[in-house]
């Protein structure tokens, strides 16, 4: 009897899982493995019509990627976006969460909703909006800076300013998401901890350093890793706002992969780009987790 029930349940379970496993297998796992295979071939526009022209080239694509100056630039730009934009975004989120969570705040839900609003907007649409906000002569940003005596900046036209402009847009667009996660972390800190330290005569700054920050540790790791992973995938902002320019200063790895793959149809090379980025993301995640663990102990 028992065996029959178990068999019954096991059959049902596999039936319930089969649509998901079939879809993931065919349209996720298979392409990932195929991508690895593709990256060691010279798959190009001719191969799309005739598979037999594909040759195994070993690690040639990877070697060429690292000697290709444009890929080097794309890697540098992506790291710029990750290393400057990521922390900026995380600290803006933390600041917003601390403000919204402060004990004396009125209209807390209103502010939370306002700060979260950019998160639900469509990236392509707001990137277009910001393109106009950054306009050197008609844009609101230069208008506002002009009021305090700062000369107009050619935000998207100057290779030095283009990446900071994309970072500013990304911070605006995303900080609300991590703010919510920090809020969840802040609200899960037991009130008794604060009360006890208040009785011990700790100052507000001391409570922040010794209770709030350490308690947020796991949240911080989660936010930092997720933000970093998201930032490595920079694509729509440069695609819509700068097409990777000026002077390739905003060409990201994913944008280059898109151009290499779907503009020039060099799918072998593009797959190598994708895998290099993936390996970098894995290594960066591992390093970040190690660092935080070392700090915690």
């Amino acid at each position: 009897m028992k065996g029959w029930v178990e068999r019954q349940q096991s059959r049902a379970a596999w039936a319930f899982l089969s649509p998901a496993l079939l879809l993931l297998g065919l349209f996720f796992f298979l392409p990932v493995v195929a991508g690895l295979a593709l990256s060691v071939t010279d798959f190009d526009i001719y191969a799309i019509g005739d598979f037999s022209t594909v040759r195994f080239v070993g690690l040639r694509n990877y070697v060429q990627a690292f000697t290709n100056p444009v890929f080097g630039t794309a890697l540098r730009n992506t790291f710029y976006f990750v290393l400057v934009g990521g922390p900026l975004s995380v600290f803006t989120s933390l600041g917003a969460a601390l403000l919204v969570n402060a004990p004396l705040v009125r209209f807390r839900t209103f502010f939370r909703t306002v700060f979260f609003a950019p998160v639900v907007t469509t990236l392509v649409a707001v990137a277009i909006v910001w393109r106009y906000l950054y306009h050197p002569s008609y844009g609101l940003l230069n208008l506002a800076l002009g009021k305090v005596g700062i000369h107009p900046i050619d935000w998207l036209g100057d290779p030095h300013w283009a990446m900071p402009s994309l970072i500013l847009l990304a911070v605006w667009k995303n900080f609300g998401y991590n703010m919510l996660i920090f809020l969840a972390g802040l609200q899960s800190i037991p009130e008794e901890l604060y009360e006890a330290s208040r009785l011990d005569g700790a100052t507000a700054a001391g409570r922040f350093r010794h209770i709030t920050l350490p308690s947020l540790g796991p949240t911080f790791l989660f936010v930092a890793v997720m933000t970093m992973i998201g930032h490595f995938q920079l694509f729509a902002e440069p695609y819509v706002m700068t097409q990777g320019g000026p002077l390739k200063s905003t060409t990201s790895v994913v944008l280059l992969m898109y151009q290499e793959g779907f503009k020039w149809w060099r799918l072998g090379m593009a797959s190598a780009f994708a895998f290099i980025l993936f390996m970098i993301m894995l290594a960066a995640t591992w390093i970040q987790m190690r660092l935080q663990r070392a700090e915690a102990s």
Partner: peptide, 14 residues
């Protein structure tokens, strides 16, 4: 941990 972009090129061909 695998980003979607890694499989996008073969998925397109498929």
């Amino acid at each position: 941990v695998i980003p979607a972009q890694v499989g996008m090129l073969p998925l397109f061909l498929f």
